[in-house]
Design a protein around this nucleic acid. Structure first.
Lengths: 126, 126
DNA sequence: CCGTATCCACCACGATACTG
DNA sequence: CAGTATCGTGGTGGATACGG
């Protein structure tokens, strides 16, 4: 109903798999979203995101850097300061991510409803 | 540059996290894409996707069913036949997924380029 | 402040074999 | 053909502590 032509699905070895492998983990999308407004410091990202450990943040950023989506900029100052920002390439990913966010805002409740509708387990507690 | 207002990012406990938790695994997005053209049989999905095991397919479908995104329909026939299809709610997820696919088709090469540009490791094998 | 190393628990995933 | 059970494993991600 909504978009894929006959040959351009997500299957087998299509390029679409690349996108999935790129973002299908716990933090990548969230980190990209955190960078979507401009350069941010490491510590600020930690607070902004909430729940991520320094280890995972650094690890995620490094991966994105290697993929050309994020740029790391270290300033040689007395208290070290490191800022991360999206590359132009990375910025192009924001729109698809934004589409996901919008979807969640619009349909999140429906999903949660379906979820606890399913919580009338096998047990028949009248 | 591209969309998030000041208060509507992906962070902390925003609804956006729901979407991430929903699709952030190896197969969910691929399975949804496989269903995007209409009802499909279990076995056909296996062949269509390529690489997924029956176990993971069933497991993924069951999760999507619980979230109200997929409907399971079993036909009482001699050789058992089971078809899966997107619910209307599930169909709304196709567009965001499609956006990802499009992104990958447009920018996949750039990512791969950045990736092996980074393969000039620390070692200086001129 | 930034980053990494280490240790560890957990779960996602695959292989295989079995039931209906 | 569809689904489940079981087992084994590697990787992901958290806590903590240390180094620059």
């Amino acid at each position: 109903m909504s978009g894929f032509g006959p040959g351009d699905a997500f299957l087998a070895d299509c390029p679409g798999r690349l996108a999935v492998e790129l973002i299908a983990d716990k933090w990548t999308v969230v980190v990209l979203a955190g960078l979507s407004k401009g350069p941010v410091r490491h510590g600020d990202l930690i607070k902004l995101i909430g729940g991520i450990s320094r280890k995972m943040l650094t690890q995620t950023l490094r991966r994105l850097e290697a993929h050309g989506l994020v740029r790391r900029r270290a300033h040689a100052e007395a208290p070290p300061r490191v800022e991360y920002e999206l590359t132009p390439l990375g910025a192009t990913l924001i729109d698809p991510i934004h589409a996901l966010t919008e979807w969640a805002r619009a349909n999140g409740d429906a999903v949660l409803d379906a979820l606890d509708a399913g919580l009338e387990q096998t047990a028949g507690n009248h």
